[in-house]
Amino acid sequence: MAGLSLMIGASDMNLGAVFRGEGDDALILLASRIPRTLAIILTGASMAISGLIFQMLTRNKFVEPSTAGTAESAGLGLLIAVALFPTTSLMVKMVIAALCAIAGTLLFLKILDRLPPREPLLVPLVGLMLGGVIGAIGTFFAYQLDLLQYLGIWTTGEFSGVLRGRYELLWLTGGLAVIGYLFADRFSIMGMGRDVSITLGLNYRTVMWTGLIIVSVTTAVVVVTVGAIPFLGLIVPNIVSRIMGDNLRAAVPWAASLGAGALLLCDIIGRVIRQPYEIPIGTIFGVIGSMIFLYLLLGRQSHAVR
């Protein structure tokens, strides 16, 4: 599957070069095609890893940034940043969005503590509700401040605006993904619960915070640069978990390749289907993703939950 993802990556660039850069324009390739492909790979891989880590931390297979309020919190944070400090750099806006994403995720984890542990489906429902509430607050302020169209852009990911100089922040998610991989054993142990973690001498709080920050900052960067891609962090880890199991040392590279591959595929579909116009990748993935999500929910008798 890693090979498949690479192939898609390659063919995507060929295809792109062929039907976009008719006059074999190297500038298009360098300024648009390569950044776009890199952005997609970084986003897909890091969002998939974030989902995987998030699911280990919460011990719930249905949790990911868009079912836990993280993505909405990041959007709200970005809105606050744009409203209060419209002239600051993208970096500062990203930091504010990341802080809001951390706060929102923390709130979600606090609520999680009070939910009955035997009701795994309650968790994403509560997360979606929390996301809805935070999203509604965001919409209200966006409406008041005439920023609604921005909010639309942040909540539906798409890569058509990715050019050289506008995606480099995404390398940060690549770095976070590497940290996630280095911590893989610790997150796997967290997935076995608090008692096992303590028995094995893990500093439970430190690992929890590390994971929280990786997930929140990755989400914030993605929201700020390309916009949220719902369900990616949910579907990819679940597929990997079914095939590979939850030993993250082995699962992280697979999730990364599959995440990048799936996103590349959706991007190609989005570009081809209504040529020369584009359908945002978030929409494509949202449609395909929600169908797979429903399938996982309905067909969960085997491995999706305990």
């Binding site: 054993d185 610790r186 796997s188 142990i189 008692d195 094995l200 893990l202 939850d246 030993n247 939950v305």
Partner: peptide, 26 residues
Amino acid sequence: RQDNSVAARLTVADLVGFGRYPHHKG
């Protein structure tokens, strides 16, 4: 402990291997 409901999908070898984590730290 008495109640070991592990939701994570791990193989037996993975699980037993994690018992060594305090010694090898990864």
